[in-house]
Amino acid sequence: MKKIILSGGCFWGIEEYMSRIKGVIETKVGYVNGTKEDPSYEEVCRKDTGHAEACYIIYDEELIRLEELLSKFWQIVDPTVVNRQGNDIGHQYRTGIYYTDKKDLPVILSSKNEEQKKYSKKIVTEIEPLSCFYEAEEYHQKYLKKNPGGYCHIKLD
């Protein structure tokens, strides 16, 4: 099994979207690559932790390759916007790709370069090794499965 962590606005939508992809085995939401150890949602929202809301994805590379997963990710974000996706505004809503295996970096960069061809503005999506991931509170996990009418900036249907 492989791992990749993706951020792109509210983590509820990213998680729900990714969980529907064949080959994605597990998802969980949390806070990635910030400076405060084990932050709360309230702390992340105050923008003083440096974390992004993100979705930790475990996938079976026999069923879906990283290139395909990233292609699906690019379809649901605007990678040229800083600190905003849909109605979500703030540093915690930035787009990002955080990897746990440095062998994934060439694939990620190639995917970004291919995506860049679609835009006149520069892609600002962070691409960094994972430095930390703290699981979000339980009520955030699988939020849109538990609350099908809940807010989502991503078109899921």
Rank of each mutant, 00 (worst) to 15 (best):
L66N: 09
L105R: 10
D157E: 14
Q85H: 02
E26S: 05
H91F: 09
Y93N: 05
E26Y: 07
S120N: 11
A54N: 10
Q85S: 06
C152P: 05
K22E: 14
Q116E: 07
D88H: 05
R94P: 11
E114H: 01
N87M: 07
P79W: 05
R46E: 13
F73K: 00
Y151F: 09
I123L: 06
K36W: 01
E114R: 09
K142P: 05
A52E: 12
G150Y: 06
F73W: 03
Q141M: 07
Q75C: 11
L6N: 02
Y17F: 15
C55K: 03
Y98F: 15
E68Q: 10
V107L: 07
E42Q: 15
E126P: 07
T80I: 09
K103V: 00
I5N: 04
S131T: 15
D78W: 01
H91N: 01
K22D: 13
L70P: 05
K146S: 07
A52W: 02
S111P: 03
N113V: 00
S40W: 01
D38M: 03
D78L: 09
D38G: 00
H51M: 03
K121W: 04
Y59S: 03
N147E: 00
E26L: 12
K36V: 14
E26D: 14
Y143Q: 08
S40G: 13
D78S: 08
K142E: 12
L6T: 00
K103M: 05
I154H: 05
A54I: 08
T100D: 04
G8P: 10
K28W: 15
R46H: 15
T35M: 03
S40D: 12
L69A: 04
Y93E: 11
K47L: 10
M18Q: 09
K118H: 07
I154A: 13
H91C: 05
V32T: 14
D60V: 01
E53M: 06
I76T: 03
